[in-house]
């Protein structure tokens, strides 16, 4: 049987469509992110080991989240020498546009074991509302 598309709003596909264009906007120089979504909000986790949590700056304006920070560089003293150098260092800056506006005061962020976790609850005003249809007289 043919599937009939009623054109209903599907948060899942909406989200997928939204994030599908996301990869291109990211540069290799930023810490990688994973994004978890629900109808109530978004949780973002990002791998950024070895960063002083006080040096991580987060800001949220409407539907835009900005994460900035710095990973300290190891400077060798005299008499010391490198064998391998694979870890990155330096400043990073990342802007993410969320699929909805966020309740700015309710954003929470923690940094544990080198992973930043930001929970961003969806703004009440932005949540889909149920509109009851009244019977015509």
């Amino acid at each position: 049987m043919a599937r009939i598309d009623f054109g209903l709003w599907d948060p899942r596909s909406e989200m997928e469509r939204f994030f599908s264009g996301f990869r291109r906007a990211t540069s290799e120089s930023s810490p990688p992110m994973n994004i978890f979504t629900s109808e109530e909000g978004v949780v973002i986790t990002s791998e950024m080991s070895g960063i002083d949590p006080e040096k991580i700056e987060l800001s949220v304006v409407n539907d835009k989240l900005t994460i900035e920070g710095i990973k300290p560089v190891i400077e060798l003293k005299e008499g010391e020498s490198w064998h391998r150098r694979e870890r990155g260092y330096g400043k990073f800056h990342r802007k993410v546009r969320l699929p909805f506006s966020v309740e700015g005061d309710k954003v929470e962020a923690t940094y544990e074991n080198g992973i930043l976790k930001v929970s961003l609850p969806r703004a009440e005003a932005d949540k889909p509302r149920k509109i009851s249809v009244k019977m015509a007289e």
């Binding site: 791998e47 080991s49 005299e78 064998h83 694979e86 074991n113």
Partner: peptide, 23 residues
């Protein structure tokens, strides 16, 4: 894990490994 390895002035080997999520 990505590592930095260096030898300090006492000829000790020092390794730093990025392992986010591990404790």
């Amino acid at each position: 894990p990505r590592v930095d390895i260096y030898e300090d002035d006492q000829n000790n080997l020092r390794i730093l490994a990025d392992m986010p999520g591990a404790n």
